[in-house]
């Protein structure tokens, strides 16, 4: 293997946004975005985990994947919620995590904030666009 290269990131805090746009199964994007979010926690950056379009189904309660032979990873989003709570409670840590659902996508699919496995902020598209514009890094899947 080639030599590992590392950059000095000490003392830098940026705003990362992870935009989930795809249904949880059918393509691998949801699972691999989730893996990227979980790994990023170690870097203590700000993070907004956003669910839009069919991405809102990723965090829907009551998923049963037995019939499609896929691992139900919806419970893993609970780890994101735990990271968010840790960041909120630790005053020494400059790290804000947000879990955001786009209102229009949620409503178009007949869902409400109570239908999700994690507590979410519900933001209308126009407000979400403002939050998106404030980000340093936007990663989508």
């Amino acid at each position: 293997m080639s030599e590992e290269i590392e950059f000095d990131t000490a003392g830098i805090t940026k705003k990362f946004m992870y935009v989930n746009r795809k249904a949880p199964y059918g393509t691998i994007y949801a699972l691999e975005v989730l893996e990227a979010v979980l790994i990023s926690a170690a870097f203590e950056q700000h993070a907004a985990i956003v669910f839009i379009d069919d991405g809102v189904y990723q965090i829907k309660k009551g998923q049963d994947t037995a019939a499609i032979n896929m691992k139900n990873f919806s419970k893993t989003y609970g780890i994101i919620e735990m990271e968010k709570e840790d960041a909120d409670e630790d005053e020494d840590m400059d790290m804000v995590w947000r879990i955001i659902v786009e209102k229009e996508s949620m409503e178009a699919r007949g869902l409400s904030a109570d239908d999700f496995v994690v507590d979410v902020e519900v933001l209308p598209s126009a407000e979400l666009a403002k939050v998106m514009a404030e980000q340093d890094v936007v990663i989508s899947g």
């Binding site: 590992e4 990131t9 990362f16 990227a36 790994i39 170690a42 870097f43 340093d136 990663i139």
Partner: peptide, 20 residues
Amino acid sequence: RISGLGQLTEVGIAADRLVV
């Protein structure tokens, strides 16, 4: 080279722009 996902977060922090 093969490495971990942390290298993505790291370049996101270190670079001026991450283009996807």
